[in-house]
């Protein structure tokens, strides 16, 4: 079975339907699947529930799918960087579920690992725990959180081999590895596909079993907060 597709549009062919749940990797704009997000926009699929730590910025990343009103609901931990998001949310056009970042990461990890629920101390005694089961273990309270799976996970990695073994780069890894495991179908975009055998098996972050389809993308890699220091002049 060949996993490599010629482009983002082809890689999503036959996978999309209105009302579906999509996980999208990335933290802020770092390590987001730029090419697949653009292809989702072009596909016109709508009523989406999108699980992603953030919601992009205006005009880039998931911000593009907000502009076109393709997203019905976001499941995120922090969404502060997006005016269009704010407008739609305040107008009641967009549903939002906040998860603590670690709870979100673990819900996705659990979902991919076949664990339907787990207990965490995060959020006990806060709004996050409302309506959820709380149980005591060794004298401490924990809240039950459920695992998450998606109809489709879109993931960005640095390199893949032809079998879909993935290597991520620096902090662009973030939510991508767990999302790759939690998709009924997982489509991955990478900067480079290398021949089988050229990645060290000990250095693979995500084994190809989790990867259904693979493309080579082109990347803008926009930076949200370019922060630099000055060289001292001699």
């Amino acid at each position: 079975m060949r996993k490599i597709y010629p482009g983002a549009k082809e890689a999503l062919d036959g996978l999309l339907f209105d009302g579906m749940t999509i996980m999208a990797g990335g933290f802020g704009l770092c390590g987001i699947p730029e090419n697949l997000i653009a292809a989702l926009r072009d596909s016109g699929v709508k009523g989406l529930t999108v699980i992603s730590n953030n919601a992009g910025v205006d005009g880039f990343g998931l911000g593009q799918l907000l502009e076109t009103r393709q997203i019905r609901k976001m499941v995120s931990s922090y969404v502060g960087e997006n005016k269009e998001f704010e407008r739609q949310y305040l107008a009641g056009e967009l549903e939002l579920e906040f998860n603590p970042q670690g709870t979100l990461a673990e819900r996705i990890r659990a979902g991919g690992a076949g664990i339907p629920a787990f207990f965490t101390a995060t959020g006990v005694g806060t709004l996050v725990a409302e309506g959820k089961e709380v149980r005591e273990f060794d004298g401490r309270k924990y809240v039950m959180e459920t695992g998450l799976v998606s109809d489709l996970s879109i993931v960005k990695a640095w390199k893949a081999d032809e079998r879909g073994n993935l290597v991520f780069r620096k902090t662009a890894r973030n939510f991508n590895p767990m999302m790759a495991t939690a998709g009924k179908v997982t489509v991955v975009e990478v900067e480079e596909i290398v021949p089988v055998g050229s990645l060290d098996p000990d250095q693979i972050h995500t084994p190809g079993i989790y990867v259904d389809r693979l493309i080579v993308g082109t990347f803008e890699k926009r930076i949200e907060q370019r922060t630099v220091r000055q060289r001292e002049t001699a």
Binding site: C30, K221, I223, Q225
Partner: peptide, 17 residues
């Protein structure tokens, strides 16, 4: 980073390079 070291794949939790 110095200006010529900026790497979009390397940010902190505040999204700063």
């Amino acid at each position: 980073p110095y200006d010529d070291q900026v790497d979009p794949d390397l940010i902190n939790a505040g999204k700063q390079t």
